[in-house]
Design a protein around this nucleic acid. Structure first.
Lengths: 215, 215
DNA sequence: CTCGCAAAGTTAGTGTCGCTAACATATGTT
DNA sequence: AACATATGTTAGCGACACTAACTTTGCGAG
C-alpha cells in the first residue's frame, strides 16, 4: 500500500506545506523540502533556535534522513543561504530598473534593497554575516557575496564617470557597504528607534549616497 | 579530610588559571571565575562553540555549579558581555584624551576604538550584535549601549558647534554608528581584503568623519 | 563553643540534539 | 526478474542545558 496509515504526522496537509511533506516512503524531493523547512524555521526561531530535528518534523521524515542529502547541519544552512543570496542578487538588479544609468539614485536604490532584504530575511542575513568566524565560510558563499558587491562597484564607477573599477571606486564601495551593512544590523536590533516612516529612510539613504559619492 | 584526593582535575594550576580554579570544596568566587572562563571560551571558540560544560571544566567545578549563580546559560553570557561593555566604554573615553574638544579627530578616535574593540573582543561584539533578535535583549545591555552612544553624540554636537543633541546631531550620530558598525563586521569577516596598513585604516575613518560632519 | 541554617558545592538523572551504523524499501537498468 | 543503488527507517552514542535531591562548608546567634 502506498499511503497506508502513518498516523503520527498530520495526514491532511495544508497546501502551504504540500511542497515539503512527503507522500509515501520516498519523499520526492527531500533536499528541496528540507531547504524550504530550514528557511522557514530559521526565519521563525532564528539561526540559534534552529534544529535539524525541527526541520525533519516539518518535512515529515525521520531525524536521520537529512544526512543522505547533506553532510551535516552546517551544509543544510549553507544550501539555504545560497538560495537566499541568489534571490537577494535578483532583487538588487530589479531595484535598478527604470533609473537612468549613472544616477546616484541607482546607488541609493541598491542600498535600500540591501537593507530591505536584511530586515525581511533577517535569519539568512544573520546567518551569513552575524555568525562567528568560519561558521559559514563556504567559498561558494563568499563568491556569491563578491558577485553582489560587484553590482555596487559598477554603479559607483558610473556615478563618478569612470568605466573601470579604480581603487577610489573600491574605497567608496566599501564605505557604502559598511554603511548599509551596519544600518541593517542596527535597524534589525531596533537600536534606531526614531527611524520611523519609509520616506525618512529614503532620505537617510540618499543623503549617505551623496556624501560618499561627492569628492 | 579537606583536600584528600580529587585527582581528576589538575591539582597544580598555572598562575594564569589561578584566578578561576577553586582550592577546596568552595571556590571562593565562582561567579567571577565563571565569567572569566566564559569570556576566554567565547573568544576562543566563538559564541556558538561555547558551552556551559566547558566553562565548568575550566573553572574546575561540576556542571551543576553555575546554576547557583546564574539562571541559565544566557545569563552567564549577559553577565560576561556586561563586563565587556564597561571596558569598551572606558576605552572609548580613554581614546579621547589629549585631543582638543570640538575637533573631528575626536569622532575619528571614537570610531577607531569602536572597530578595535569589535575586532579584539570579537566574541563579545558578535554576542551583543550578531545574534538573532532577543538572544541578548537584556535591558541592562541596551542601557549600557545607549550610554556609549551618548559619548558619540556629545562629540558630534561639539564638532558642529552645538551644545545640545538636536535631531540633526542624532541623525549624523546614527550615520557614524552605522558606518563603524558595518565596518567592524566586514573587517571581522575579512570581506575587506585590501584594508592593509593601520595608517590606511586611519585615513578611511577620518574620511568618513569628514563626510558625515560636513554639511 | 556549638548549634543550626543558609549558601554553595556535589552526584545522578531527564530530555533534546547532532550524528552514525545497520537495516529496509523503493527505483531504474539490464 | 534480479540486482545495485539511492533513499528512507530504527536504534543508539556522546554532548549538552538544566533540575532534583543530597552534602559540605562558613557563619552568626544563643
Amino acid at each position: 500500500m502506498k499511503t497506508g496509515k502513518k498516523s503520527q504526522t498530520l495526514e491532511v496537509v495544508a497546501p502551504d506545506e504540500a511542497a515539503l511533506r512527503k507522500s509515501g516512503y520516498h519523499h520526492g524531493d527531500l533536499r528541496a523540502g528540507l531547504i524550504e523547512a530550514t528557511r522557514r524555521l530559521v526565519e521563525e526561531k532564528g539561526p540559534d533556535g534552529f534544529s535539524v530535528s525541527d526541520a525533519c518534523r516539518l518535512a515529515g521524515v525521520s531525524t536521520a534522513a537529512p544526512y543522505k542529502h547533506f553532510k551535516d547541519k552546517n551544509e543544510m544552512l549553507v544550501a539555504m543561504v545560497m538560495e537566499g543570496m541568489a534571490r537577494h542578487r535578483d532583487n538588487m538588479l530589479a531595484a535598478l530598473e527604470g533609473i537612468p544609468k549613472g544616477s546616484p539614485d541607482r546607488v541609493t536604490a541598491l542600498g535600500k534593497e540591501y537593507v530591505t532584504f536584511a530586515l525581511e530575511e533577517n535569519g539568512i542575513f544573520r546567518l551569513k554575516f552575524g555568525g562567528y568566524t568560519d561558521r559559514l565560510e563556504d567559498p561558494r558563499l563568499q563568491a556569491a557575496g563578491e558577485q553582489t558587491f560587484d553590482i555596487v562597484l559598477d554603479e559607483v564607477a558610473a556615478c563618478l564617470g569612470l568605466d573601470e573599477i579604480t581603487p577610489d571606486v573600491r574605497r567608496r564601495g566599501f564605505m557604502l557597504w559598511s554603511f548599509v551593512h551596519g544600518l541593517s544590523f542596527l535597524l534589525a536590533d531596533k537600536k534606531l528607534a526614531a527611524m520611523g516612516g519609509d520616506g525618512e529612510m529614503d532620505l537617510f539613504l540618499s543623503d549617505i549616497s551623496r556624501r560618499v559619492l561627492s569628492d
